[in-house]
Structure formats: C-alpha cells, structure tokens
Design a protein around this nucleic acid. Structure first.
Lengths: 178, 178
DNA sequence: TGGCGTAGTCAACAGATGTTGGCCTACAAT
DNA sequence: ATTGTAGGCCAACATCTGTTGACTACGCCA
C-alpha cells in the first residue's frame, strides 16, 4: 500500500504513453509497460481493464489549434504542429498505431478533419473545397512528422524548426487559402 | 508434388506481399499468409527460412523514377508516385512496416534519399540543399500516401488522380527547384 | 489491539506465434 | 516394378501474449 490509487494509475499511463509512442500498439506489451512502471502486469489490468482501454487512455489527444491571423496561418500551423508533436506523446502514439489499426486511424480522421476544417472555413469562407484543403494540410503536416520523427530522414532531422517553417509554411498557406 | 518449387515460392511471396501490405509486419502472421496461399505454414519456412527473410523478399521495391522534363518534374513525380503505389504493393508494405520497424525505415531512407536526391541535383545543380529538398519532396509524397491510402481521409480518397496532381505538383515543383 | 479495505504480488490459464523435425506421397528415371 | 527425390503435410515445441483469480501485506480506524 505504498502509493495512492491515482498516483499508480498516472505512473502506468505515463509508461504506456511512452511505450505506445515508441513501439506502436502491438509491440508495446502490457508486461513491458508494467516493467517500466515497476509494477506487476496485473495492476495494469486492474486499473485499465483491458489493453485496448489503456491504449484509448494513452491516445487521448487534442490538437488545440490556436487562433491564427489569416496571413500567418501557414507558419503558425507548422510551428504549432512541431511543438505539439514534441510536447505531447499522444500524436506520436496515434501515428505509430494508426498505420495498422483502424480505430486509431479513425481517431486521426476525426482529429484532423474536425479541427483543421473549421480553420479552413474560417479563412476561406468556402465550405465546398474546405474538406480537401484541410486534408491536404493534414497530409503535408503528417508527412513532415513521418519523415522527421518516425522514418528519421537525416536532412529532416537536422533541419531547425525555423528552417522547416520557412520551407513548409508557404505550401500550407497555399493549401489553406489559395 | 503438384506445383514446381518456383511456382509455390511465387504463390507464397504474392500472398505475403498482400498480407504485409494490408496488415503490417506483426499482424501479418505466417499462418495467415500460408492460409492465403493454401499451403502449410511449414512450407513458408522451407522456402524463405524465416519470417524476416520472407519480409525482406516481400519488401523488395524500386521507385523506378523516369526521366522528367525540368518544368514538369513536379507533376510527373506525383503521377508516377500515385501509379506506383497502386501498381506495386512493395511501397505499401514498406510504409505500413517502416513506422514500427527500424529495418524497414532504413530501407525507406535509402530508397527515397538515394533515388530522389539525384533527381534534385540534376534539376538544380545545387548539391548543398539537395538532401533537404529531396526529403521535403519525400515528406509530401509520403504524406499523400499516408492520408489517402493508409489513414483514408475521405476527401483524399474521393479526389481524382488529376485533382491531386493539380494540387500537389506546384508544391513539389517548388521543393524541387525554387 | 484487532480487523478491514485496498495496493500489490504470484502463478497460472488459454490462445497465438515462429519454428522444427519427421513422415507421407506423387512423380520420374532406372 | 523399384526406388530415389522433392514437394507437401502434420504434430509438436518453446515462447510470448492478454488476462484472471487467489493470495499477501500494509496502514488506517475503531
């Protein structure tokens, strides 16, 4: 009876986020997560019931898009996305898993569709092409994350945040408004 | 003694490509591949030795970039990439697996770095920024594949090939030359 | 001090997975 | 007809997986 229930749950969740982010759903085993949390695997089940529920908790994520001035939306989006990626493991969890898991893919669709599209509509006032525009923005941003953080293309890893913003923001801006 | 050795090997390989492309490395089990090929799992081992070797064979892939006129390199690249994706399961296998498997990620790096970079150098004659340019092109193309074929963002799925080329090619062109 | 609730552990289960070795069987050459 | 070879199958293995239920030990409250 060392820690409180809430503490232990938080420790498990943190370990799970790390493992899921690093290894994806299948390779992130309950036993490995439990070992990271220095806890018996049975505890994980006690607190989260099932691996899927644990994953659902670990993949909790919100893009939290800020208000963006129309002429700087591109740069703002890229910067926000890069920082979000590095600060919140949730996005990494989702991308690593969404590639082979339909439930996670669905979450990606709702997150990016649901949050980027309103931004586009606000900027263009053109609801008809907004879905495609939003998807194009998402595709570029996810391509960025994929090549920089997952596949680790050396030039993308070496590039500074400002450099990447300089390259990407005009493209995003065009997808958004042009 | 129905089929010849080479025939069976080809049947297994075809089934493996499909499974790896659809499910990724972990979920594509030897037993499932064998069932698709209507063959005993032991046969898979006999012909390919190990699951990793089978994967290596299934992930054999070449981008086969064509010669491209400098002013149409962007459009040509996007068109070629889209068709390549749909015709050759190798790319899909690599992307589905590269996200959680370092060996596959390394292959992606060499394929895209090794084949897109010469194209960029040929177009710009600027070897210094070519690696980053090539990576940016790759990031956009992979983002396209990810959102259209893997995550299946509805607007990306619904868009026609020509529509996508129209949107993406100016961006790729700018990454390549501007 | 005694007991109760709850954090934590242990051991085991059932199923799946990669992998192995032995066995069978059909064909072709002798 | 015999036999050798090679394609194919079966059953089993060791291991790993998520998951479960019984058991232990601590610390609070009466």
């Amino acid at each position: 009876m060392r820690r409180s229930s809430a503490e232990t749950k938080a420790v498990i969740l943190a370990a799970a986020r790390e493992r899921f982010a690093a290894d994806g759903y299948d390779k992130a085993t309950i036993r490995a997560i439990a070992a990271d949390a220095r806890i018996d695997p049975a505890m994980v089940m006690r607190y989260f019931g099932t691996k899927e529920k644990l994953f659902a908790a670990a993949a909790e994520f919100d893009l939290e898009l800020p208000e963006l001035a129309p002429d700087q939306a591109g740069a703002g989006l890229v910067r926000h996305f890069l920082r979000k990626w590095e600060a919140d493991e949730g996005l990494q969890v989702l991308l690593r898993t969404g590639v082979t898991n339909e439930a996670a893919a669905e979450r990606m669709r709702t997150i990016f569709g649901g949050q980027v599209m309103p931004l586009v509509i606000g900027l263009t006032g053109d609801p008809e092409r907004a879905p495609l525009r939003a998807s194009l923005v998402a595709s570029q941003l996810l391509g960025l994350a994929l090549s920089r953080y997952i596949l680790k293309f050396p030039p993308m890893v070496a590039a500074s945040e400002e450099e990447l913003i300089a390259w990407l923001s005009p493209m995003i801006q065009r997808y958004l408004t042009e």
